[in-house]
């Protein structure tokens, strides 16, 4: 017989694995993500991998999966999520026949490393997504993140949704077909969608209304600043995946606007979901 804490830990691992898979499976099965495994600049992937545990740690800190006052527990959570993500990604890439004989170690590390980013986020969030809704809601209400925390959560949402889209050729294709008028309209649409989400979070959602906040103030504080955060995340993603190499400034702006559209949805939804 297993003792209760050990069984609880195994159940936790299983949930983390399920969450990792759910979040990473669209990217696990995308050609561009495998191709990036060997075409990505190693230093940029290393930077992304160094940022991942910091991101997970901060996420644990703000969302509070467990109300441990000790920061080392959040660190443990982050590293467990990474372990689960790496094993899961390697297993399924192997099952797909993508890593094995004839594949250089660098290529395999690149492919697994890229998948670790979304999968570890999934592993981390699975606890909050797959149960204890009321509990989490409560803890979030109790420890309402300050403004920087809110912006961080938006950045995580943007990162998550744009991660699978940034490496695709479609971002470049769309940014080439759009005219300046289209781009301005897309920025407006992104802002509108973000603001709709912000409105629902503040007035209808779980996060309590701060008395005296006007709609205009919300627009400035969350929607506009949030969009700027999303644009920075998009720029970083595109740069990491080498999509900006050899592009002129105008083309870079186009690509950032296009990728910021899914990013804006992710950022706005993250405040509602997390």
């Amino acid at each position: 017989m297993m003792r209760a804490p050990e069984r609880a830990f195994l159940v936790g691992l299983g949930r983390a694995g399920g969450g990792a898979l759910m979040f990473a499976v669209p990217m696990l099965m995308t050609n561009e993500m495998w191709a990036l495994g060997f075409s990505i600049h190693p230093m940029r992937l290393a930077l992304l991998l160094v940022l991942t545990p910091i991101l997970l740690f901060t996420l644990a800190h703000y969302i509070g999966f467990r109300e441990s006052p000790r920061l080392v527990d959040h660190l443990a959570d982050a590293l467990v999520a990474i372990a689960v993500a790496a094993f899961g990604a390697a297993l399924f890439l192997f099952l797909f026949g993508l890593i094995g004989a004839g594949v250089a170690p660098g290529e395999a590390i690149g492919m697994v490393g890229l998948q670790v980013v979304p999968a570890s986020m999934g592993a981390m969030l699975s606890r909050s997504q797959f149960g204890q809704e009321s509990d989490r809601e409560k803890s979030r209400r109790l420890s309402r993140p300050h403004y920087l925390g809110e912006l961080f959560i938006m950045a995580v949402g943007a990162l998550f949704l744009s991660l699978g889209i940034a490496p695709t050729q479609e971002v470049m294709d769309i940014s080439r077909t759009m005219t300046a008028a289209h781009e301005l309209a897309l920025i407006a649409a992104s802002l509108l969608i973000m603001h709709a989400f912000v409105y629902f979070v503040e007035f209808r959602g779980r996060v309590p209304v701060v008395p005296g906040t006007s709609l205009r103030e919300l627009f400035a504080r969350f929607t506009v600043v949030g969009y700027a955060v999303v644009a920075m995340v998009s720029l970083f993603m595109l740069w990491t995946f080498g999509r900006l190499d050899g592009l002129g400034p105008g083309e870079i702006v186009n690509a950032v606007i296009v990728l910021s559209f899914p990013g804006a949805i992710g950022a706005a939804a993250a405040r509602l979901v997390l």
Binding site: L13, P42, T52, L75, A78, L79, A83, A86
Partner: peptide, 16 residues
């Protein structure tokens, strides 16, 4: 498990 995650991560970053 966290230690395994740390080793995997630092191994990958180190290699890259």
């Amino acid at each position: 498990v966290a230690a395994v995650g740390g080793v995997i991560l630092s191994g990958m970053v180190g290699y890259l």
